[in-house]
C-alpha cells in the first residue's frame, strides 16, 4: 500500500463573529463552527473528492492544509510529519509542494500584475527559471497547458473572462509541479469542453508525476470523473466517505442521497431534480446537539436530536455517520 501523503486528524476551525470589544460586552459574539472535527487521509497519487453543502467548511479545510489559516485544534500530517510544527522557513519551502487553486480567481489574482508577472513569480521565488527568456518560455508553456494562447501573456487579470481567469489560477497552481494540489472548485467557471480538457490535463499530470489531489467541487459528475475516493461534508462534519463507485451507486447517508437526487441531468426530457430534504439549511453558528441533519432528515428518530452520530465503518473503506442506516 502506498504511503499517506496527507493525514488530517480531528481538525477543528472555529471563527468568531462580532469579536470586537463592544460586541463582546453586549454579548453579541458568536462562534462559527466551520470545521468541527474532521478526519481523512489521501495517499500519494490519489484523488480525494470533497463535496458538500455550500458553507459546510470545504474551503476552510483547504486553507487549513496550506496553513493560510491556523486550526483551532487538530493535526495535519504531510508525509507523516506534523505540518503545524513546521518553522516559517520550512513552511515556505513546503508551499512549493502544496498548492491551492483558489475558489475565487477574481479575488486571488493581483489586478496590478500582468499574467507574465503572476505566473513567473513562483518560478523566481523557487529559482526554477532565472533569465527573462526562460521565464517567458515556461509561462507560455503553462498558458498553453490550460488552453490560453500567447497573445494573453501581457494582459491584466481584469481583462479576462471568468473562465480565462480561472485557468490562469490553475496555471499558477501547477507552475511548480507540486506534490499536492488542492483544487477549490477549479473548473466551475469553464464550459464543458474546456473543462474536459482541464480534467484530462489533471489526470495526465497525475499519471506522469504521481500528483495527489484534494478536489473540491459541487459538480458531482466532475467529482465522479476525477476522484478515487469521495468525502461528503455537512455543516463542519464529514458524514460519509468511501470509494467513488460506492458513493455514487450505493450512497448510505441521507445527505449524500439528497445530493445525488438533486443533480439536474443535461436532458430536458428527464425529470427535473428532486429535493428530498425539507426545512432550513442547518447553521454552523452554535449548532444544536445531535445530528446536524436532524430537522431536515426523512429518517430522523428521537436519538438524532440527542446524540451526535460517529463516523463508523460499514464496509471496506466505506464510513458513514448516521444512527439509522
Amino acid at each position: 500500500m502506498t504511503e499517506n501523503l496527507l493525514e488530517v486528524k480531528d481538525l477543528v476551525k472555529h471563527f468568531t463573529l462580532n469579536g470586537d470589544l463592544v460586541s463582546r460586552i453586549a454579548g453579541k459574539t458568536q462562534t462559527v463552527k466551520a470545521v468541527d472535527g474532521i478526519n481523512f487521509h489521501i495517499r500519494q497519487g490519489e484523488t480525494l473528492g470533497l463535496v458538500g453543502e455550500s458553507g459546510c467548511g470545504k474551503s476552510t479545510t483547504g486553507r487549513l492544509i496550506t496553513r493560510l489559516i491556523e486550526p483551532t485544534a487538530g493535526e495535519i500530517k504531510l508525509h507523516g510529519e506534523d505540518l503545524l510544527s513546521f518553522s516559517p522557513k520550512r513552511m515556505r519551502e513546503t508551499r512549493r509542494n502544496v498548492q491551492l487553486v483558489f475558489q475565487d480567481p477574481y479575488a486571488s489574482l493581483n489586478p496590478r500584475k500582468t499574467i507574465m508577472d503572476i505566473l513567473s513569480r513562483p518560478l523566481e521565488v523557487h529559482k526554477l527559471a532565472t533569465t527573462w527568456h526562460e521565464k517567458r518560455e515556461r509561462v507560455l508553456e503553462l498558458l498553453n497547458l490550460v488552453g490560453l494562447g500567447s497573445e494573453h501573456i501581457d494582459r491584466y487579470p481584469h481583462e479576462f473572462s471568468g473562465g480565462q481567469r480561472q485557468r490562469i489560477a490553475i496555471a499558477r497552481g501547477l507552475a511548480l509541479t507540486p506534490e499536492l494540489v488542492i483544487g477549490d472548485e477549479p473548473v466551475s467557471a469553464l464550459d464543458v469542453s474546456i473543462q474536459a480538457q482541464i480534467l484530462n490535463l489533471f489526470r495526465e499530470l497525475q499519471e506522469k508525476f504521481s500528483l495527489t489531489y484534494l478536489f473540491i467541487a459541487h459538480d458531482l459528475a466532475v467529482i465522479r470523473h476525477i476522484s478515487d475516493r469521495v468525502a461528503v461534508m455537512y455543516v463542519g462534519k464529514i458524514v460519509e466517505t468511501g470509494p467513488v463507485a460506492t458513493i455514487f451507486s450505493d450512497p448510505l447517508h441521507p445527505y449524500t442521497k439528497a445530493l445525488l437526487a438533486a443533480v439536474p441531468e443535461a436532458d430536458p426530457k428527464k425529470p427535473p431534480p428532486r429535493l428530498t430534504l425539507e426545512g432550513e439549511v442547518a447553521t454552523p453558528i452554535d449548532p444544536p446537539p445531535g445530528c446536524r441533519l436532524n430537522g431536515r432528515c426523512p429518517l430522523a428518530t428521537s436519538i438524532c436530536g440527542e446524540v451526535e452520530p460517529a463516523l463508523v465503518s460499514v464496509a471496506t473503506n466505506h464510513e458513514v455517520a448516521c444512527h439509522n442506516l
Partner: peptide
Amino acid sequence: GLLRSIPRLDVQEKFLTPIDGTVCN
C-alpha cells in the same frame, strides 16, 4: 461537441472527450 463533452454521472471514464484544439486568438 459541447454536448459530447459533458462528464457522465453513471460511469467513470478515464479521459473525457473535449472538442480538439483551442479557441482562436
